[in-house]
Design a binder for these strands. Structure first.
Lengths: 195, 195
DNA sequence: CTCAAGTGAGACACCAGAGTATCATTAGAG
DNA sequence: CTCTAATGATACTCTGGTGTCTCACTTGAG
């Protein structure tokens, strides 16, 4: 139904690269919605022959594996510069949210595919991302941005889910993309009760 | 790893009934963790022959369908008496949460299977549950329990996800089952910032 | 415009899981 | 304890998805 960032399809790349990225992009969205989706479905959505998929990925497993690595790279790339800024916990939180909400698809994908990953290395990527939020939660508590009475695991889990929920709600068209990060932040810190 | 409410297996029922419910219960948990799980896996976990499953459910589709209906019934049964109490929005919220968190598995199951439901009737059950939370959110806003500046869709979505997250976190063993409802309530209303 | 690289369509073998049928074994009601 | 209903094991077919291959068509760089 919705169309995705077709604008980001770089026309200056070679034909091969374009096809490859088209498959990668669309596969991500199809599989995020339905992890059971067949290669035929993916091919159809990507407007590509099923055989073509096999020209770029030797198996379904490898396709999924690449998607996961890609998702991880995107998150890593977005987050690293923030950490290097060495901000206080509160500001780091704000920047994290701002950057992660639009990456909800990647975020979610990494989560929902953790189950199927027979591949051992992929489990590490997932755990690594979780660790990030746990670390941040710890700092938030240490710097008293977050009440220390609340279990750490709960803080991290809620933060993780708020970000994903925001992305999902934006996708449904229920809230504006530009409003999302602020909503996550205020919900996280202050909840919904009137001030 | 974890064992489930085996205590609820009623020994006074007939052998057939016990087998049937054993399959139903375990299938719910297996499929909640991995929607792709094969009937062999379910049979194994339920300590039952694969053929036996087919004696009680004419197809995998029907098994899943029954699980969904069952999940819906559980939620319905839990929620109805609360609504009939005619409490104010705030108290209704509290009771809802108290009752829904332990039903996280059913809650989640209804959610995650909505996608696969070719069956039209099942979609209605899902929409019905979503409606409940939307209704409650509307009342919360009307009675000024929740700030009216926040989009309704966002309130409902967060409430839905907080409940699911709580159940998930309990399952992981990261928070105590008895603490969960209170955590959801305070997180929802006040967020994590220290008072 | 030309033509090679890239692609789509389709036929095929292969496999895993769904669903069926049969029979020997076992649980447990009476 | 007995005997039947219920079960587990096994062997089978069928279906849908995966992965391979070929060939004719299209695209777009030169």
């Amino acid at each position: 139904m919705e169309l995705f960032d077709q604008a980001s399809v770089n026309k200056s790349n070679s034909r091969q690269t374009r096809t490859r990225e088209k498959v990668l992009n669309l596969a991500m969205h199809v599989l995020a919605k339905n992890p059971k989706a067949s290669l035929s479905e993916i091919a159809e959505v990507a407007e590509v022959g099923r055989a073509t998929i096999f020209r770029y990925f030797k198996s379904r497993k490898q396709l999924v594996s690449e998607l996961i690595v890609e998702a991880d790279t995107k998150l890593e790339t977005a987050i690293k510069p923030i950490i290097e800024k060495n901000l206080n916990a509160g500001d780091t939180l704000e920047e994290f949210i701002k950057v992660l909400v639009p990456l909800g698809a990647s975020f979610h994908f990494l989560n929902s595919n953790q189950i199927y990953a027979e591949d051992s290395g992929i489990d590490d990527l997932y755990k690594n991302q979780l660790m990030r939020l746990r670390e941040l939660s710890k700092r938030l508590r240490a710097e008293n941005v977050v009440s220390s009475e609340i279990p750490l695991a709960w803080v991290a889990a809620v933060l993780d889910n708020l970000i994903y929920t925001a992305w999902e709600t934006v996708l449904k068209g229920d809230i504006a993309p530009n409003d999302a990060p602020a909503l996550v932040l205020t919900s996280f810190l202050n909840g919904f009760s009137p001030r």
